[in-house]
Computed example of a mutant assay.
Amino acid sequence: MSEHVLPEPVVRIEEVRELARDLVVIPNRRVQLVPNIGVIGGTHSVLVVETGMGPRNAETVLGFAAEYAAGRRLYLTTTHFHPEHAFGAQVFAGQATFLVNRAQAEDLAAKGAAYLDMFRGLGEPVARQLEGVEIATPDVVYDDAYDLDLGGRVVRLLATGRAHSRGDQVITVPDAGVMFTGDLVEAGQFAIFPWFPPHDTDVSGTRWISVMRRLAGASPRVVVPGHGDVGGPQLLADVRDYLELLRDETWARRDSAVGEQTIVEEVRAVMIERHPEWAGREWIEKGVGCLCAEHPA
């Protein structure tokens, strides 16, 4: 994933930002492998979005959420199964009801152990946070959409279909105009393509574009990306436009029978010229590989 040593992926309860009434985000502070975490309240219940990586981070999140809830019932959901988003769910057992979409639950069961091994190989700081991880089983599983009544506020959980992963979901708070996207959207960073053939090829660039078109059409007031700074609806448009350009530049070269390494080099140069300030340049090559595989014959 990255050639340099990753920093300690620790969730810190700092600079907590209120996005709307009874709705806050714990920012990731642009630390790699730390997600933006949401806490959404209603009159009788509170929903936590994301756990952080591993039991220790999840304990921090649960401690904050329990204090924030002040006796209200707790729920937990995660935007997809990747370790920094979901591999702390075990800590919430008995304290919160864990609910996700069916495809994500299947990803957790089928791929969780393999991703745990892969992420442990990213270096000691990451491995340390993954000590003692047990892959949790959700308490409630839905198919396409789920309306969660928190009391005076309904939060909608929506399975998007295959994109960044097979089991992506977005969480929207209609009365506040807030959308949590997980890694369908990153701010200030190239889209993360977990393209790891032959082990995992579920990411789909073409389907991701379709998802982003639908999400952009929803025009939320506030977008909470998986990683990076909270923003407005322009974040959705930025990712959609980037993915479309990545597809077009890749497929144009594929049509000309250019070798894949040449495609990677040329498309990488185009993307960096377009977005020189964005982080995560290593993901451009993964995106090209995915889109080459999806090129229409």
Rank of each mutant, 00 (worst) to 15 (best):
E3G: 06
V5Q: 06
E8R: 04
E8Y: 03
P9R: 02
R12Q: 10
I13M: 14
E15N: 11
A20E: 13
A20Y: 04
L23N: 07
L23E: 13
P27Y: 09
R30S: 15
Q32C: 13
V34G: 08
P35K: 06
N36K: 04
I37E: 14
I37A: 14
V46A: 07
L47T: 04
V48K: 06
M53P: 00
M53Y: 03
N57P: 08
E59H: 00
V61F: 00
L62F: 01
F64N: 01
Y68T: 02
A70H: 05
R73Q: 11
L74R: 00
Y75A: 08
L76Q: 01
T77A: 10
E84M: 06
H85A: 02
H85R: 00
G88N: 07
G88D: 09
A89I: 00
V91E: 09
V91G: 01
F92P: 04
A96M: 07
L99N: 05
N101W: 01
A103Q: 10
E106I: 03
D107R: 01
D107S: 08
K111W: 07
K111G: 08
G112L: 09
M118Y: 14
F119D: 12
G121V: 01
L122H: 07
V126T: 07
R128S: 15
R128A: 15
Q129L: 13
E131H: 05
G132S: 09
E134K: 02
T137V: 14
P138M: 13
V140L: 15
V140N: 13
Y142H: 10
D144K: 02
Y146C: 12
G151I: 01
V155I: 12
R156N: 15
L158E: 15
A159T: 12
A159I: 13
T160K: 11
T160M: 15
S165P: 15
D168T: 06
Q169A: 14
Q169E: 15
V170K: 12
D175V: 10
D175S: 13
D175E: 15
D175F: 00
V178A: 11
M179I: 00
F180Q: 11
F180I: 07
G182P: 12
V185T: 03
G188T: 06
G188I: 05
Q189W: 09
A191V: 12
P194A: 11
H199K: 12
H199Y: 14
V203H: 11
S204D: 13
G205E: 14
T206C: 15
T206D: 15
I209R: 04
R214G: 03
A216G: 08
P220T: 03
P220C: 09
P220V: 04
R221L: 14
R221W: 02
V224E: 14
P225S: 08
D229T: 01
V230R: 02
Q234C: 07
L235E: 12
L235M: 06
D238V: 05
Y242M: 12
Y242V: 03
L245C: 07
L246I: 02
R247N: 10
T250W: 05
R254N: 07
A257S: 06
G259S: 06
V264D: 06
E266K: 02
E266D: 10
A269T: 01
R274F: 04
E277L: 08
W278V: 01
A279K: 04
G289L: 09
L291G: 07
C292N: 05
C292I: 10
A293G: 09
H295V: 06
A297L: 13
A297M: 10
